[in-house]
């Protein structure tokens, strides 16, 4: 995401926070296809993805005022809202107790909004791709399956045919290697 787009999105969110409906429409035009794709990827069900997308934009309209305090780049904030909402629906559908709502980690105010964030993020993006490659197909695939399809440790373990604890330990180490790689 280039700087001009980031600034445009931040301005739209700021105007949405002030109740500007035309800015809300513009934000929807600019981002709804991407957020819809995330909902579809996680939920694998078009009607439910569409319903989730509606909840996501209602949430965005209501919480835009808190955006500037959370320190995330605008697209990450929007993606996180969409993903968390879809994950919560997924977990509710699976009636899987034992998983905390993803929304819990959604809005954490930051004391440092970090104006350099977008540059950092675009660097991180290419770095992320390189580091996932370095991680190897199996672990990178598992990270993608968790992020884009919402798989749990148990589901991954079943897919790989290993005990959950083994899988968890393996993926946790993969995440640490990923962090080490992108921090280099």
């Amino acid at each position: 995401m280039n700087d001009a787009r980031r600034v445009a999105l931040e301005e739209m969110i700021a105007r949405v926070a002030l109740g500007d409906r035309s800015a809300f429409d513009a934000l929807y035009d600019a981002t709804s296809a991407k957020l819809h794709a995330i909902c579809i990827s996680l939920l694998r069900d078009r009607p439910e993805a569409e319903e989730t997308l509606q909840e996501v934009y209602i949430n965005i309209w209501r919480s835009a005022g808190r955006y500037s305090a959370n320190g995330l780049s605008p697209m990450t904030w929007l993606i996180t809202i969409a993903r968390n909402r879809a994950i919560d629906r997924l977990r509710a559908r699976e009636a899987r107790p034992g998983f905390a709502p993803a929304e819990a980690a959604a809005v954490v105010p930051s004391p440092d909004p970090g104006p350099e964030l977008s540059t950092i993020r675009s660097q991180q993006q290419s770095l992320l791709a390189a580091c996932l490659d370095e991680l190897g197909e199996a672990q990178a695939g598992a990270v993608r399956a968790v992020y884009l399809e919402g798989l749990t440790y148990a589901e991954l373990a079943a897919r790989e045919g290993v005990p959950v604890n083994t899988l968890r330990s393996w993926l946790r180490r993969g995440l640490l290697r990923l962090k080490d790689c992108v921090s280099r």
Binding site: A33, K34, H36, A37, I38, I40, S41, L72, S73, M75, T76, I79, T80, R83, A105, L117, I120, R121, Q124, Q125, L128, A129, V143, R144, Y147, L148, V182
Partner: peptide, 14 residues
């Protein structure tokens, strides 16, 4: 969150 959001770029917008 920032790091992983890059994965969403792999999806085709719908």
């Amino acid at each position: 969150q920032e790091r992983l959001a890059g994965l969403a770029d792999e999806l085709t917008p719908v």
